[in-house]
């Protein structure tokens, strides 16, 4: 029993990572009605920016917030330059663009910072805060940061006019234009925000998995799984989904033959299971409409 509890808490700590990424996936999905396969790479690149800033002597939190700002601008610029010209192209073209972005960002990081692993600091320390090695300070900090971010997003989308305009622009672009919303600008804003959230996720994850150009590939899959479990239309659901995936993944270690190498298959199975049984996810909103 004690073992089970231990695994659950450990799962929550890794789940916080997935929750972060799931949140940024849902964000961009809400902003542009798309899943961005380059999302993880953008987060990775942002983390390198933070690392570079600290190499140049910036204090952690200074680097943290500057990185968020830079990432926002980068996300915005990528939308305006790369994505905008093909905005009306079919989904297949979009996926190719995401693949291209993936390749470009991944290789640029390797080009600038090499493919070797770099340690990344945590602002929270690594001491245990709960029992014997159950939850590290960094794990707790990560959960807290995710919570704060989620709260801020909720307030932004629920109570600000820009948030409302962004939701409207993604749900119904034509109608949004007809009430005077500049839809293209909103899309770019969505990319910017998603990049900023991704940057936070990357900086939170890097101390755990170390910094290298491929650090996000598998984590992105868990993030997807979390987003799908929670529902792609629900930021809160995505966070829950992220934590759930972390816990389930840890608990699966009790199943015989399920070594560490099978963990990704759990994410796969979860995605397919949820998409098949309840495509809108546990908390996703079903869209009711009359014709």
């Amino acid at each position: 029993m004690e073992q089970v509890v231990q695994q659950i808490i450990g799962g929550l700590a890794t789940g916080a990572i997935y929750a972060c990424i799931a949140l940024s996936i849902v964000m961009i999905y809400q902003a542009i009605d798309h899943l961005n396969f380059a999302q993880g790479e953008m987060a990775m690149f942002s983390t390198y920016i933070a690392w570079q800033l600290m190499q140049w002597g910036a204090p952690y939190w200074g680097a943290f917030f500057i990185t968020i700002a830079i990432s926002f601008v980068l996300g915005y610029v990528i939308e305006r330059t790369v994505f905008k010209p093909v905005h009306n192209a079919p989904v297949l073209s979009h996926i190719v663009i995401f693949i291209a972005l993936f390749a470009i960002i991944n290789s640029m990081a390797g080009f600038i910072w090499e493919f070797t692993i770099k340690p990344f600091p945590t602002p929270f320390g690594t001491k245990s805060v709960l029992g014997e090695g159950l939850l590290s300070a960094h794990g707790a900090g990560m959960i807290a940061v995710t919570g704060v971010m989620l709260g801020m997003l909720y307030l932004f989308f629920r109570y600000t006019r820009v948030g409302l305009a962004m939701r409207a622009a993604s749900a119904n672009p034509d109608s949004a234009r007809l009430v005077g919303i500049r839809v293209g600008f909103m899309n770019a804003l969505g990319w910017g925000m998603a990049a900023a959230i991704g940057a936070v996720a990357g900086m939170m994850i890097a101390p755990v998995v170390f910094l290298e150009p491929n650090m996000m590939v598998t984590i992105l899959l868990y993030g997807f799984a979390g987003a799908v479990v929670g529902g792609l239309t629900s930021p809160g659901g995505a966070v829950f989904g992220g934590f759930a995936v972390g816990v389930i993944e840890n608990l699966a270690s009790f199943v015989p033959h399920f070594g560490a190498e099978m963990k990704l298959s759990i994410a796969l199975a979860l995605i397919i299971l949820v998409l098949t049984l309840k495509p809108s996810g546990l908390f996703g909103r079903r869209i009711v409409s009359r014709v």
Binding site: R167, A168, N172, S175, L178, V179
Partner: peptide, 29 residues
Amino acid sequence: VRLGVAHVPEGRGTFVRQTVEENLQLGGI
């Protein structure tokens, strides 16, 4: 639109996922 041209489109252009309140707020965004 910002010049004061309000287009009520074919099919009504309702923001179906948003509430009535939010629809009206969007009109005045």
